[in-house]
Write a protein that binds this DNA or RNA. Structure first.
Lengths: 188, 188, 188, 188
DNA sequence: TATGAATGAGTCTTCATTCAT
DNA sequence: CATGAATGAAGACTCATTCAT
């Protein structure tokens, strides 16, 4: 599963062959099929790996007492991955971009589910921050409701990862990460 | 070229066969090769199409007298594409995500070049707005220098497109588009 | 026709495309088809070129009074072509090698016909030399009858061309050419 | 490899499809690629087959005590192949003629290497015969040095094979083979 | 369970040949 | 008669998947 996650992230789904994954995992191709009946199951497995990593990361962040600090630490973690992001993009984001185009309904929203999981965790933090934005047509706290704030945060991450990747420039992560932290600090 | 741009956007590079493009263009496969010697040349052609569209769009926006209005109209245009974005993502962004992983140096930064073109145009608008942010370690106007602002804007677009796509939700474009416009208005 | 002869000699039949010939002749592809209905007709045309060249050469040699001198001058002409032979082999011989494998009966013996024409001319010279070899089971003059001598001469040419070509060594032509001339001189 | 050698000999390199070889070997096409990554590797394999056959043949001849007898037995072996030669030419010679025209440097001299191997073996036999030809400008024994004699012998074989093939006449092999044996006998 | 070979459908690419102008 | 584009039938090669051992 780790090999699948790594190679699929680095090469993309369609460009990765089962032989690539088998080689990375140092097992013969035939054996891969003993555990995963199709290539799609391997993609699924890679997504599970990403989910597990995400859970592990948010689990660690949850130990911080202040929700705002948790979110800022999350941004910190993203920035730390800047070199990988500049080379290969966000693992889940690029997977979502590739899988999302599928017309056959297989796995096409699975990467989205992982992102939604992150969204939910972030929304929980914003809720806990109990912000006092003005109410409006958009619901409680206007556009500053927890769900929208979470969306902005994660979209910010995906945007900066994609830009860093497209421009092959890790510095994009640093600059946009700083902006996200300032934004988190500015919320009241 | 239009057929290539459309189909490659909808299906991704690796999932698209030459036959798909030929069918969309309603020409026999062999004929495609009369004009494009390889599949990569078709991808390149698709990127040219996107560049042409971008130039045409910014050309139209340039007619607006106020640079801030131009940028807001740009965001407007993005939001109008929300249904396409939710289904297939940003044409250039998803292309960048897929091509950027190539290890063989072919086309891997070509989509990035298109994005950079957009970045440059946006930076020009911000420069024209002559903002008076405080100077700092990041140069004139601190993190509010035109290049960083352009980066934030385009990253915002890419982020919201990817999120709309991953979540299959056009509304993401509407909400994040509104946020971007508010942000543009807030700059002084 | 000249372009066909040249390119087919240099690249072989199967490796040569009509576009190659058209380019060499500096005419558009479509136009080639106005004069030659199929690729095979172009091969045939190339063989005609070779036949014409052969006729022209033997015609010139025929002006020499002594048949032995004609044959020696022929060998001389072969040796003069040593650089071309070392690079591309004998035009007719390599064509015969390639076409002779065809199973469909098209052109498969056409190159052989050109070689036979050379054989006939050579036999005529040997006959004129009126050699006095002993008669034997092989017919008049034993193995020294004109037809066999012609065969030995032309086989010698084909052998040295092929060896020069295979070894990429023009010097093979020089050495074997000298041997052939000594052999011609030795016949009585 | 045997199937490749056979079919490539009979049909030539360019006229042979992978499917042809697979059919002859009675394996599915895909499986051929498990062992040979490209068509060129199959050609290389066919050449290895020819080399192996050559080594096996000369190995057997080496058991004869007299070098002259070895060479005569070699000619004998060639003549025995007369029907194959008349239909398809010498396997290595025709391969050399076809491959030698390649301009891309792939395999273009590989067939020549096989021929050179035969040349070396023949030269060794002539050396062992310790001939006493007159010295001259061409080195020890004049044009009768072992290398030149070997060249003459192998060129003789290639010439007669090509002629037999071009004329579709196995008898050419018989007649020229007899001549080569007489020539070997005449050397002192 | 592990292994390496087998299988064949699918994809890119080439090119002889045709055709409209 | 010239031109450049159109056409589609192969052919090389890849790779997910299966299978025998």
């Amino acid at each position: 599963m780790a090999a699948a996650a790594k190679v699929l992230h680095e090469q993309g789904v369609e460009r990765t062959t089962l032989a690539d994954i088998a080689r990375e995992a140092d097992v013969p191709v035939g054996n891969v099929y003993y555990y995963f009946k199709t290539k799609d199951e391997l993609v699924q497995a890679a997504l599970s790996e990403h989910t597990a990593y995400l859970d592990e990361l948010t689990g660690r962040l949850d130990r911080l007492p202040d929700p705002r600090d948790r979110l800022k630490a999350l941004v910190e973690a993203w920035v730390e991955q800047r070199d990988v992001a500049a080379r290969y993009g966000c693992p889940t984001g690029t997977l979502a971009a590739e899988l999302g185009k599928r017309a056959d309904g297989t796995l096409d929203t699975e990467a989205g589910a992982v992102i939604r999981r992150l969204l939910d965790w972030a929304a929980r933090q914003f809720r806990e921050m109990a912000l006092s934005g003005p109410d409006g047509p958009d619901g409680p706290n206007g556009p500053d409701n927890p769900d929208d704030l979470a969306l902005t945060l994660v979209a910010g991450y995906q945007g900066m990862s994609l830009m860093a990747h497209a421009l092959r420039d890790p510095d994009v992560m640093t600059r946009e990460g700083a902006r996200l932290r300032r934004w988190l600090d500015s919320l009241q």
